[in-house]
């Protein structure tokens, strides 16, 4: 993942609440086995509404409350990112969507509604992760972000690499759990599968 710090440019606006991941990318477009190429399906069905006027191609998207609710599909942030968005500024973001976004370097920002509206009205904005501010139309709006998440985003760090540094602790935990006696079920205890699966290669 690439480091994120400054996102600057034009703002697209989707001033609605509860834009769920099915609206961001309908399930029928999730059949690719790669991570890229989902951008062309972004808002595929939603954008057919007559009153739809969200510009695609800008780096910043503003939205209402509970953006990204619903399915845990990471295809939603992938589609947004693939379409060129680098930062989502919303009144609130659904939990899984928020964390999925940080995993791919799509910067999630939560601000009060009046501030989001001002940013949308300004049409252009500069988001500074280091300083935790959004500057738009002459105003500066500070935002909150978890320090660990911020560190990861600024450095473009992969979560897995970070955890694998703690692999000793994981191994110790597994030993303690085994020693405690109550054995957790193992999927390998189940009788093996008799069916012929597609051969490897």
């Amino acid at each position: 993942m690439d480091p994120v710090n400054i996102v600057e440019g034009r703002v697209s606006d989707l001033p609605r609440d509860d834009v769920d991941t099915d609206q961001i990318i309908p399930a029928r477009f999730m059949k690719r086995v790669e991570r890229t190429g989902f951008g062309e399906y972004l808002f595929h069905d939603a954008k057919q509404a007559p009153d739809w006027n969200v510009e695609i191609g800008n780096p910043i998207l503003t939205a209402g409350a509970n953006f990204g609710s619903g399915s845990s599909r990471e295809h939603a942030p992938w589609a947004l990112e693939d379409a060129g968005f680098r930062c989502i500024i919303a009144t609130s973001l659904a939990d899984i969507f928020y964390s999925n976004s940080t995993k791919i370097g799509l910067l999630p920002v939560e601000l009060p509604e009046d501030q989001v509206r001002k940013i949308a009205a300004a049409g252009e904005a500069k988001v500074d992760l280091e300083a935790q501010t959004v500057t738009a139309g002459g105003d500066v709006f500070p935002f909150e972000i978890n320090p660990d998440t911020k560190y990861r985003l600024l450095n473009g760090l992969d979560d897995i690499g970070l955890t694998l540094r703690q692999v000793e602790m994981v191994a110790q935990f597994e030993e303690r759990q085994d020693a405690a006696g109550v054995r957790k079920p193992s999927s390998l205890d189940l009788p093996p599968e008799p069916i012929a699966t597609t051969p490897v290669g």
């Binding site: 599909r73 964390s99 999925n100 897995i160 970070l162 955890t163």
Partner: peptide, 20 residues
């Protein structure tokens, strides 16, 4: 919990989940 694909990869690799 439901998790995203990056987290699926994380759990496959580490059997742990980063979670506040």
């Amino acid at each position: 919990f439901g998790i995203g694909t990056s987290e699926v990869e994380h759990v496959l690799a580490t059997q742990c989940l980063v979670q506040k």
